[in-house]
């Protein structure tokens, strides 16, 4: 019992929560943006992988860390454009297109990685983002190191939550985006351009996903290796349902999830006799549990997965 309290009261554990949550925040915001305009983006797992690879490769070949993040975002937006072209104007199956993007983007990442580093047996490393303590705030006991001594991309992720929450609910563009996801015909009748809005939102959302991947190679770890995303993308898709498609709740979901993950990592080291695989299963099982709890309660964007063609019902 006292070890449990030790874990829960350690600064290291709470610091880790925000770090683990960051790629999930980027990812869930990305999924949320796509789904809010009515398009499922199962490309996330592959786009995160590609973002992780591009971010790492940019820095490895001499770019600075923010250039790496930016390159990842741009690459993500390109995959988003591919997904958007196929699912929006052509109206192809969003499930299959997304899975295709995931398989294509991840195998392309491994191919480019192997071309760049043909023989290395252990993945080459880069110097990752360092924590940036915010003057003053980071000196508050406990809260300081937990919240205000994170790496810069973590602050960016938190700012994006606020930006998206404000943008979606308090600006005309946000209203237009939400309307496109609820009823594209009505949006069209209002003089909006549902096709363009959808394409734009998917590109922006995919850029966010790729930045989540790049966070892993440029802040959480310092190298790229195949299968490093480990289902984080799929977890983000589940978290968006849990969040009922709201940015603030997406943040909450990501934090809650990261809390359990950080907790199980520390629990592994103190609990004897329980196979480590059971702990590793927890994140996936928790995501499924979150889906069960929220499936009927969540308010799904009404036009999710419905292709829109002008004049066709």
């Amino acid at each position: 019992m006292s070890t449990l309290l030790d874990i829960l009261s350690s600064i290291g554990m709470w610091e880790a929560v925000l770090r683990i949550a960051t790629p999930l925040i980027f990812g869930t915001l990305g999924v949320l943006l796509c789904e809010r305009v009515g398009v499922l983006n199962l490309g996330i797992e592959g786009i995160m992988t590609f973002g992780a690879m591009v971010g790492w490769l940019t820095v490895y070949s001499g770019g600075d860390l923010w250039t790496g993040m930016l390159a990842a975002a741009a690459a993500g937006a390109l995959f988003g454009l591919l997904h958007a072209m196929m699912t929006v104007p052509l109206g192809l199956s969003q499930h299959v297109t997304g899975l295709g993007i995931t398989l294509f983007a991840s195998s392309l990442s491994y191919y480019i990685f192997r071309l760049a580093v043909p023989t290395a047996s252990s993945p080459p490393t880069v110097t990752p983002f360092k924590p940036l303590p915010i003057p003053g705030l980071s000196e508050i006991p406990f809260v300081g190191p937990v919240l205000f001594s994170q790496t810069p991309p973590t602050y960016l992720a938190l700012a994006l939550v606020a930006l998206l929450a404000f943008g979606l609910y308090r600006t005309p563009l946000g209203l237009a985006l939400r309307m496109t996801g609820e009823n594209p015909h009505a949006a069209d009748a209002q003089g909006l351009d549902p096709i363009g809005l959808r394409i734009g939102a998917i590109m922006a959302g995919s850029a966010l996903m790729a930045m989540g991947g790049a966070f892993l190679t440029l802040a959480a770890f310092n190298s790229f290796f195949p299968t490093m995303i480990q289902g984080r993308g799929w977890i983000c898709v589940a978290l968006v349902v849990f969040a009922s498609w709201r940015p603030q709740r997406a943040l909450l979901g990501a934090l809650l999830f990261a809390f359990f993950d950080a907790f199980q990592l520390r629990l592994q080291t103190v609990v004897d006799g329980v196979p480590y695989q059971l702990f590793l299963m927890l994140p996936y099982l928790l995501s499924i549990l979150a889906l069960i709890l929220m499936a009927r309660r969540a308010r799904v964007p009404q036009a999710l997965m419905q292709p829109y063609r002008r004049g066709e019902r």
Binding site: G231, A238, I288, L291, I292, A295
Partner: peptide
């Protein structure tokens, strides 16, 4: 429960 099987089958792979 009305849980979409896409995500659950994906997660169960892991």
């Amino acid at each position: 429960f009305g849980v979409d099987e896409v995500v659950t089958t994906l997660l169960l792979n892991f």
